[in-house]
C-alpha cells in the first residue's frame, strides 16, 4: 500500500457503516464507471434493503470533450429502473474536482426527474472546482495536485488504492 492512501476495503466498510442507518431502503445505487461501478456492486451486497443497481459512463457529458476528445471504450449507461421520482445514491471511487459528479447528474436527468440524489464516495481527496459535497464518505485524504488516486480490483474482487503521477 502506498503511503498516504487508506486501505480500500477498510474505507469501504466505513462508507457502508455511514450509509446503513441513513439510506432509503429502496434507493437505487448508481456507480460511475469504472471504479464507482465496482463500489456500487459491493455496497449493494453490504447494505440491507432493495437497491436496484445502475451504471453511468459520463463520457458523453464531460466538460473537457473539446480539449480531450472521447476516450476509447465508452461503456453503455444502464439504469434499469424508473429514474423519474427515484431515490438515487450516486457512487464514485474518488471525489476530486466534482466534474464527474456534475456530468453524472446531468446524465441522470436525461432519463427522468429523480426524487432525490445523494452522493457516496470511497475517498474525498479535496480540491473541488465545483460546489459538490458527498453525502457519505469512506475516508478523507489530502493529496498533491500532481498525483492521482487509482482504484483497482483483483481477481477475487478485492479493492485496493494506489497513487500514480497525474
Amino acid at each position: 500500500m502506498d503511503a498516504g492512501v487508506p486501505d480500500a476495503e477498510r474505507a469501504l466498510e466505513a462508507l457502508a457503516a455511514r450509509m446503513r442507518p441513513a439510506v432509503a431502503h429502496d434507493a437505487a445505487f448508481v456507480g460511475i464507471y469504472s471504479g464507482g461501478a465496482w463500489i456500487a456492486e459491493r455496497l449493494a451486497t453490504m447494505i440491507p434493503g432493495r437497491h436496484p443497481l445502475g451504471f453511468v459512463d459520463v463520457s458523453f457529458y464531460r466538460d473537457d470533450y473539446a480539449r480531450a476528445g472521447l476516450k476509447p471504450n465508452v461503456k453503455r449507461t444502464a439504469l434499469p429502473f424508473e429514474v423519474g421520482g427515484a431515490s438515487i445514491v450516486l457512487i464514485d471511487d474518488v471525489l476530486y474536482t466534482g466534474r464527474s459528479v456534475r456530468a453524472a447528474i446531468n446524465e441522470l436527468f436525461d432519463f427522468g426527474r429523480p426524487g432525490r440524489i445523494e452522493l457516496a464516495v470511497l475517498i474525498d481527496r479535496g480540491g473541488r472546482e465545483l460546489p459538490y459535497e458527498p453525502t457519505y464518505c469512506g475516508a478523507r485524504v489530502a493529496m498533491a495536485r500532481n498525483l492521482s488516486i487509482a482504484l483497482s480490483r483483483d481477481a477475487q474482487g478485492r479493492l485496493s488504492l494506489g497513487v500514480e503521477p497525474a
Binding site: D57, L70, V74, R76, T77, V83, D110, F111, G112
Partner: peptide, 20 residues
Amino acid sequence: LDTAEPFVSIAEREVKKVPL
C-alpha cells in the same frame, strides 16, 4: 465501432440526446 455501441441505446432515453 466501440463508440457507436453506447450510442445505440440513447434512443431509449426520455431525452434522446447527449450534449457532446
